[in-house]
Design a protein around this nucleic acid. Structure first.
Lengths: 342, 342
DNA sequence: GCTTTTCTGATGTACGTCAATCAGTTGGGA
DNA sequence: TCCCAACTGATTGACGTACATCAGAAAAGC
């Protein structure tokens, strides 16, 4: 005798198949007493609904849409690639993923787009966007229409998103700080901070964690104000280069977001890359190259594959009304150095 | 129009459903020419077989057995826990996991056990065992009976296992060495090495990687011969304590396997824990506690959840005759410090 | 006791694939 | 020409669940 089926339950509870079906799918038209009879039968037999058969029957299709910023750099591109791969891998499991790109700096376009999504088109939404009132309200609206929503990478807690899929960015900043402090080996010096052009909240949280650890444990290190010059590569290059050359007490560089080509070039141009401890976020082709060339000392990152799979698991669980296993959905903060580069 | 089904292919290829089925399942009785007709139809329509429906139909059940050593310490216990969790989570997907424990130091018992497994009982096997001729031959025999086999954590490449699920242990040793060298900050000193009591190959590979990096990059650091005293806690405690107290030039400790309570106690008893850089493998309750107490500086580990999920994905892919996505099955070498403790 | 409502049973179809059977069609050799 | 293969078609019944319908039973109201 294999796993119990609805038939077994019907027999055990002494009711018909139709009634079992009504109870299992919590449809109306069953007396309270009978509901309990069925439920105890489910308990005693240890019945678990065969989800694949169920989905086959109702020919359910999960269509998950991922809203990502356009032109936000290589990290988002790797995320995009992971999504495409996941889409293929899950084609057989009746799960389809779709990616919608949005302009990076126009929150209203994002909000409008989110508002245009509905439960008829999709069964779940994942959003990577800046935390603005418009976006927050749009997410709330989505949730009201019954769509499960998760935020990606940078949280938007003020919205009522079902879950946040990403790392604890405060802890990530703390991690970066400890590595920086230890790699510097007790030296006194200054740290140059480069602000990410990505999203607000993740950068703020990382900076917070970084500063906290520096203040607590490495009093001899001074953290400089953030440089925010990502959108003007030429100008940034000049400034970074001159700052590094004029102040030899700068011993480390911490980039709150993924480093870009221009910034790395600026570091190279300063001629001080060999002495500097450079720590950045997110494993991308550029940061990978930097690690291999011993230009970057450590990368704090999150596995995009895990991000995507976790988001899909969570959305799917919400669709099915299942609970999620929290411990399984916690995204780890990965430390990558040249030696453990995947 | 949704996804194409076998019916659509039959229509497109101008053959009957039965023929399509024969081709798809590579059953005999179809002319070469017809096979090609069907295959091109599959191509043009972009048909992907609905695996859930297929499995439902053939009421396939995957029974995977994991052979683990008994009493091998907390790491294997966390692996066990992850397996139980995975078993529950995949009950709905018609995948069942079973754990069989074996005595740790008796390779013949392991081999006999493996030889007793067969394709009637299980659809896949995962083994965590020492690499001995008996075990190697047993695995080869299993493969000959048609069962897919993967090795876990410590590879047995001489067997013809389908895949190894675990980290690159040479790289892991290298990673430990770089962290050790950098955390020591250019000091001159000696490193105490504690050999794992776990399995041979993984320890050897880690030691190899560690020594390589030390020789290449940190010439001022001397790596001592391995201490192998895991089975005699009392004696080990005395030796470790006296070694550390008598030789103040020892600046770091590297444990090739998960540290155990007795060893950590010995380090504490030496009174030198505050100055030592301690690096060990595998995140377990003990190493976690050590990290939190600032007694351990870093832990090189592999995520047991990923291990079991990867093993199950691979075994299942082999069962279904599907190819696996290599990049998705590469287990990362995780660096854990107090700040990014999950 | 009668009607009305609420609950329950029985039955059937669908989902996409697998597997098996039986009948029919080719093609090649004798 | 005939026959025996080797192929192919048509059909059918699982697999476990969802969902709809209709008839029948029990419960409630009068």
């Amino acid at each position: 005798m294999g796993k119990p089926t609805v038939h077994d339950i019907a027999k055990e509870a002494g009711v018909s198949l139709a009634t079992v079906d009504r109870v299992l799918n919590s449809r109306p038209g069953v007396r309270e007493k009978t509901v309990r009879r069925v439920q105890t039968a489910v308990q005693t037999l240890g019945y678990v609904r065969d989800l694949t058969a169920a989905n086959l029957s109702r020919k359910r299709e999960y269509r998950f849409v991922f809203v990502l910023p356009q032109g936000a750099g290589q990290f988002v591109e790797t995320l995009r690639a992971a999504l495409l791969e996941a889409g293929e891998a899950h084609a057989a499991d009746r799960m389809a993923v779709e990616i919608i790109s949005t302009p990076m700096h126009d929150a209203h376009v994002v909000a409008d787009l989110l508002n245009s999504l509905g439960p008829k088109l999709y069964s779940g939404v994942a959003v990577l966007a800046q935390e603005t009132p418009a976006v927050r309200d749009a997410i709330r609206h989505l949730k009201e229409t019954g769509l499960p929503v998760v935020t990606l990478v940078s949280d938007i807690p003020s919205s009522d998103r079902d879950h946040f899929v990403g790392i604890d960015n405060v802890a990530a900043g703390r991690t970066a700080a400890v590595l920086m402090g230890r790699f510097l080996g007790g030296f006194t010096g200054k740290i140059l901070i480069s602000a990410s052009s990505m999203l607000a909240r993740d950068s703020i949280e990382r900076r917070l964690g970084f500063d906290n650890v520096m203040a607590e444990r490495f009093g001899n290190i001074q953290v400089l104000p953030s440089l925010e010059l990502r959108d003007q590569p030429a100008r940034m290059m000049k400034i970074v280069k001159s700052v590094l050359q004029s102040d030899p007490s700068i011993a480390g560089v911490y980039s709150l977001g993924p480093i870009n080509e221009a910034f790395l070039a600026a570091l190279r141009a300063s001629g001080r890359l060999d002495d500097l401890v450079v720590i950045t976020h997110e494993l991308t082709p550029i940061t990978r190259t930097g690690l291999l060339a011993d230009e970057i000392d450590a990368v704090i990152t999150q596995n995009v594959g895990h991000l995507v799979r976790s988001a899909m698991r969570i959305l799917r669980a919400k669709c099915d009304g299942r609970r999620i296993i929290e411990s399984q959905e916690r995204i780890r903060t990965d430390i990558i150095i040249k030696e453990n580069l995947p």
